[in-house]
Design a protein around this nucleic acid. Structure first.
Lengths: 117, 117
DNA sequence: GATAAGTATATTGTAATACAAGATAGTGCG
DNA sequence: CGCACTATCTTGTATTACAATATACTTATC
């Protein structure tokens, strides 16, 4: 399981990514994230996040009927949202690269300590 | 620049990693993190984090004299800290893998939309 | 010897955000 | 009707990165 603290700031970018795949709604986004292995994102997380994105004009929303259950609120990226997602990708790649480099240094160090025994 | 929100929960694991490289102190850890490209982690971030690690028995601390400036507080990993770092590496790899997979799907989608023009 | 810069640790308060818990509501099945 | 599944939203809480500030030691500069 990915710790919830580790998701901070990353989840928002991932949600933008999921929406970029196609117009979708909160409940489905939560399931899609789980499929990608990003953990079980609950309603208390996803809906405030979506309202925040909408308020910040990164996504637009419209209600559509559903064959089963209540109306769904479908989200789509705005140009600003697309730009924000591109920037998130760059930031995450930078972060990921830096952390991987640190991990490599730690692995080397551990190997040396093992050889010293 | 890596956004500060993206560091949440990741910074702690990275600090454990830096300490695993060698016994070190707050000021130097901050500089080491910057060298790895993890941004400028300020005092207001690093010292509370180190106190937290110490309180949670993930690191031990001892004061040593410095040739220049006041005493330094050197930190070393406990077995629990080493274990926590290993777990952090697994979690981060899982997260990183999931996000990269999402990015790939988004890239495919963008390429298709481009071809549709 | 006063002043500033670099080294070093710590505290307080603030903002961002993931999540649990619970409310509301529609559909379909036994 | 009650239960499960679908679907959205709100409230309150905990975590945590960071700015700002305080403290203190050493060395160099004026």
């Amino acid at each position: 399981m990915i710790p919830s603290q580790m998701l901070k700031g990353i989840l928002e970018g991932c949600v933008l990514g999921v929406i970029s795949l196609r117009e979708t709604y909160g409940y489905e986004i939560s399931q899609t994230l789980a499929q990608y292995g990003l953990g079980n994102i609950t309603e208390g997380t996803i809906y405030p996040l979506l309202l925040r994105l909408e308020k910040n004009k990164l996504v637009t929303a419209r209600y559509l009927e559903s064959a089963q259950g209540p109306k769904r609120k479908y989200y789509a990226l705005t140009p600003a949202g697309q730009q924000e997602f591109t920037q998130f990708q760059e930031s995450f790649d930078a972060l990921s690269g830096a952390v991987q480099q640190l991990f490599s240094a730690c692995a080397v160090q551990q190997k040396q300590q093992g050889e010293d025994l």
